[in-house]
Simulated assay, not measured.
Amino acid sequence: MKIRHYLVVLGALLLAGCSQPAAKAETRSGGGGTIVAINHTKWAINHFSVDGQSGIDAIGPWQGGGGGCCYAVPAKWRPGMTVKVDWESGVGGSKGFPGFADREKFKKWKKDMQAQNEQHSAVVPLLDYTGQKTCGITVHFMPCDEVKVTTSCVSPGRPGYPINEPLQMPEPKVCPK
């Protein structure tokens, strides 16, 4: 039930974003919308951006979020088109949180948590959107620090949505390089 509710909310965000004005850039003249993400990993996404535009929200493990406005792609797709996604991943929980009463314990816990954060960057191909309406961009964070993106106006989980991996994907013991 949580996944269904999540997909409805994400779909509403995507549709709402489609009515937003396109980003004001000469090369970005396609349909505009929000920057949202779906996290298929056990790690939190502390923050992320697409081509330098912030996705706004932090995203917990196996969740979705974002909401940065506005993102638009060029009106015409060309082979080789890419976007740059930057993000920080970290621990997706507060295990061992000592509370705030003992400041030294809290500072040590916070330092230990931050030590597990990792910075990532990927140049990701844009799927062909020729003949389709575009609605911002949805970033899918996958295991092994892989990223997929789509400009589709179709809601995740619906027929015609181009990225169909399950939300809770297991992380392999060894990631391909």
Rank of each mutant, 00 (worst) to 15 (best):
Q119K: 08
G90H: 02
I137N: 01
T151Y: 05
T138V: 12
V124R: 07
D145K: 15
V139K: 01
A122T: 08
D86T: 10
S94A: 14
P98L: 07
G131H: 01
K108R: 14
S94R: 04
K108N: 04
E104L: 14
G93H: 13
G131V: 02
H120F: 07
V147G: 04
P125W: 08
M142S: 11
T150F: 02
T150N: 02
H140S: 13
A101K: 15
T130W: 00
D112C: 09
K105T: 03
I137G: 05
F100E: 08
V147K: 01
F97Q: 07
P125G: 06
G99P: 07
E88K: 12
T130S: 01
D102E: 03
A101R: 13
F106C: 09
N117L: 09
M113N: 05
P125I: 12
E88F: 09
D145Q: 15
G93R: 03
T138M: 13
E118Q: 14
V83C: 06
V85I: 15
K108P: 02
K95M: 05
T82L: 14
P143S: 07
G93P: 02
K110F: 11
F106L: 12
V91R: 15
V149Y: 00
K133W: 03
F141D: 07
K105V: 06
F106W: 12
K111T: 09
G90W: 04
G96D: 04
V85F: 03
L127M: 10
M113V: 08
F97W: 07
Q132E: 14
A101M: 13
T150K: 00
R103V: 12
V123W: 11
P125Q: 06
A115L: 03
T82N: 12
Q119C: 02
K111Q: 11
T150Q: 00
T130H: 00
K110I: 06
A122W: 10
V149C: 07
T134Q: 01
S121H: 13
W87K: 04
V91E: 05
S89I: 12
Q132Y: 04
H120E: 02
T138H: 06
V83G: 03
Q132M: 11
D112Y: 06
G96T: 02
C144K: 08
V85P: 01
N117F: 12
V123S: 12
D112A: 12
L127N: 04
T134V: 03
R103D: 10
G131N: 04
L126S: 03
A115H: 08
K105C: 06
G131S: 01
